[in-house]
């Protein structure tokens, strides 16, 4: 089990250039089935033992691809996502950073009529350590198979949280980076729903950020969850009104502040960590208290 990725996942890499090839190699070595790459006009080549095709449709028909990992450059990324959706790929994971917001707006609207679930963009991807299934850019060494799910807007904070858990001997059922952009395919709340439904997950780490109201929407769902949630909100000490790289992370009104998000999550029953160095130890305590360790 696990979420979104498992041993049956067959990954096609859209935008099979330098980064795509390097990450495909890492995933193959990890044990993931990376079945092909797609670069329009390069069909027929074989790179690093991976066949290259012209279209995502061919990837589905010829190689049974069911996960698309997208590295296509920002100006063309929206088109790549829509091509994956047209080919009815169940899960499309977009790593690309810097896609124009209005492009993502049209993509999100179009996906509402498609079967494809989008993760990202501007995200580190998805991994399931127990089944060695990886579609993303995360370092594999820090992961340990286990029962904690990790959700984050930020890529590097996923690694950070996972590293803290692994150092304490706490394994992960998976991690989902939902992405740092203002408009994303799968919200923190939806990612929580996936881990809540996963029998291999006992608890969840949720890493949010200042800006927007996505954490409040996630908190609404935390209320209904049977599994404990440990939450951290990045940017509590950031000066107001400044954009901290993630377009989402700009404080717009009182709902965008770390304090408002922490309060909403606390009221929903989540364990809120204020010091980012204590995500792992807090989860350790929560697992012990709930008899889940």
């Amino acid at each position: 089990m696990g979420v979104l990725m498992d041993s049956n996942s067959r990954v096609v890499v859209q935008g099979f250039g330098g980064a795509g090839q390097r990450e495909a190699k890492t995933s193959l070595a990890y044990g993931t089935q990376v079945v092909c790459g797609v670069t329009p006009g390069r069909g027929g080549q074989v790179i690093e033992g991976v066949p290259v095709l012209n279209t995502v449709r061919e990837a589905v028909e010829q190689h049974g691809a069911n996960v698309s990992l997208i590295f296509v450059p920002a100006p063309f990324a929206a088109d790549a996502i829509l091509e994956a959706a047209d080919a009815e790929i169940p899960t499309a994971i977009c790593i690309t950073e810097g896609i124009p917001v209005l492009d993502m707006m049209r993509v999100k609207r179009a996906l509402s009529t498609k079967v494809t679930r989008l993760i990202g963009p501007n995200c580190p991807g998805v991994i399931n350590p127990a089944e060695q299934a990886r579609a993303g850019i995360m370092p594999v060494d820090v992961y340990l198979p286990g029962n904690v799910g990790v959700i984050s807007r930020s890529g590097t904070l996923v690694y950070e949280a996972v590293d803290q858990l692994t150092r304490l001997g706490i394994g992960q059922s998976g991690s989902v980076g939902v992405g740092g952009d203002p408009i994303i395919g799968t919200s923190q709340r939806e990612a929580l729903e996936l881990f809540e439904a996963d029998p291999d997950t006992a608890a969840v780490v949720l890493i949010g950020e200042i800006g927007g109201t996505a954490e409040q929407e996630a908190a609404e769902y935390v209320k209904q969850m049977s599994k404990p949630v440990v939450a951290f909100i990045g940017g509590a000490t950031a000066p107001p009104g400044r954009r901290m790289g993630h377009a989402g992370a700009i404080i717009a009104g009182p709902a965008g502040t770390a304090a408002a998000k922490q309060q909403a999550l606390r009221e929903a029953g989540a364990e809120v960590v204020e010091n980012p160095g204590e995500i792992g130890t807090t989860m350790q305590r929560v697992l012990k208290e709930r008899g889940l360790a």
């Binding site: 984050s152 807007r153 930020s154 890529g155 590097t156 904070l157 950070e160 740092g180 890493i207 950020e209 200042i210 951290f232 990045g234 940017g235 509590a236 000490t237 950031a238 901290m244 790289g245 993630h246 992370a249 204020e274 010091n275 980012p276 160095g277």
Partner: peptide, 17 residues
Amino acid sequence: LVNGAGLAMATLDAIKF
């Protein structure tokens, strides 16, 4: 000097702590 906006923000938080 940090990589990733999220980690960079959390680094500001950790320094504050």
